[in-house]
Design a protein around this nucleic acid. Structure first.
Lengths: 238, 238
DNA sequence: TCAGAGATATGACATATATCATATCTTTGA
DNA sequence: TCAAAGATATGATATATGTCATATCTCTGA
């Protein structure tokens, strides 16, 4: 569904729509040319795993179009979603740069197209472009801040508050479609795995928010009806 | 207490004991010389705040000797400890590199000596030393992985399991003194603020672990008596 | 050195959330 | 298009943890 020429990666990084918002922003034409020649294309179907927890990646992916979840398996085998990636985001860089195994599996939430840059090429670009290093530092340090927020939220807020917060975060990250629904379809189980609660509890609390008129749902599609109520509930600090 | 000449920062970075384990490892002699001339010294008494949440730091601190906690204030004003820093660690780099306000306040848990490097000098070193950028990327990406572990633990483990885990983490991070006690004194409230629970709950569960013979305590000093039992309890995955 | 403040300890009780069970409702793939 | 598999929904119940209250204990600064 949709025109494939919009979904396939462009032939050259300079033509990529995501360039301005990615770690490749503000790089010289020559550098982009180099990266362009080093990269290959990869496609992932919805549900397909891009990276496995514990593995050693041999390169990084730059997401051209798609949505992915990062998750760790807890001791009971339950998924904990730790973050998401979408257009323009780099995937796999954490493991390569810290020289550690993959910390979180990455799976496509919808059909995804990505560019693959081998590890060696990635390091070459880093070493020859201080600007690229700075961009990577910017991204990783920003993520670190987001993780701190998530830690505080998990430690101090109730499930109900975290659920409200998650809907606001999803809207900020993925936006809304023409009808006002969050532009990301998640199962109730996946929502529970972000919030850190049992699936039944997530379902129950979603039903409550729905009956209170704060949100509405249509299958897996969720619409925020009263953002103010959500913000009040979530007790958003920052 | 203690000889001051051991506690004050050395005059030159090349003589610093922490060099090998810090982000300044493997830098050229000239670079270290530059940094040495740009830095100034700073001392923090136990309990003193090094950085305030929400502020804009004008430089980074390299910890020469000491222990500090990073914490965010939740909506109820409760501290959530998100990580620690000790000898050789950089403090404040996250905010400067992501160009965001400080995400977590930093307070000295004991008297601390640090070197202060102004923002501009810090960026100069980064731009002129790809190796330093890589070290910083290594550190920030490692921290990001640790944050992911903490998120999973908070979301999926019981307070009892997290408490067991914390004692193991503290031992791995700070080690033990000659008598076998964890080399870090925390109040029960601080322990609760790491684990993400009420102070009373932390006290109660610590009492339980004590009566089970898994740990022993002497005031604020904690000794791990049965690491195996702690590991089993924490259900450590990785 | 001592007194007051803060920390630790423990009980009683409240409650949010997990767990288990069952019934419908949607997807999805053949 | 349909049937099976999986997802959603909701009730009943159990329980871990939070909250409030009170009583020592132990630091720390004057």
């Amino acid at each position: 569904m949709g025109k494939t020429d919009q979904l396939e990666p462009p032939h050259h990084c300079q033509l990529c729509n995501n360039r301005a918002s990615s770690a490749f922003r503000e790089l010289s034409a020559e550098t982009l040319d180099t990266v362009s020649h080093l990269k290959t294309c990869a496609a992932f179907k919805k549900g397909q795993v891009m990276l496995h927890e514990g593995a050693r990646p041999q390169g990084v992916y730059c997401i051209h179009k798609g949505k992915l979840k990062f998750y760790r398996l807890g001791s009971e085998g339950k998924e904990q979603i730790v973050r998401f990636a979408t257009d323009g985001d780099l995937v796999g860089y954490r493991s390569i740069l810290s020289d550690e195994p993959i910390g979180a599996s990455v799976t496509a939430l919808e059909d995804t197209f990505a560019c693959y840059i081998p590890k060696s090429s990635f390091f070459e670009v880093i070493e020859q472009n201080p600007k690229f290093s700075l961009n990577l530092l910017h991204v990783s340090c920003h993520e670190l801040g987001e993780a701190g927020k998530m830690i505080t939220s998990l430690a101090q807020k109730t499930v109900r508050q975290r659920l409200a917060e998650i809907f606001l975060v999803l809207r900020a990250t993925f936006g809304e479609d023409e009808e006002g629904y969050l532009d990301l379809k998640l199962t109730r189980e996946e929502i529970a795995n972000m919030v850190g609660t049992a699936t039944e509890s997530a379902i129950r609390l979603i039903s409550e928010l729905r009956s209170e008129g704060t949100i509405s749902t249509a299958g897996r599609r969720v619409k925020i009806e009263d953002p103010g109520a959500l913000r009040a509930l979530a007790a958003v600090v920052d």
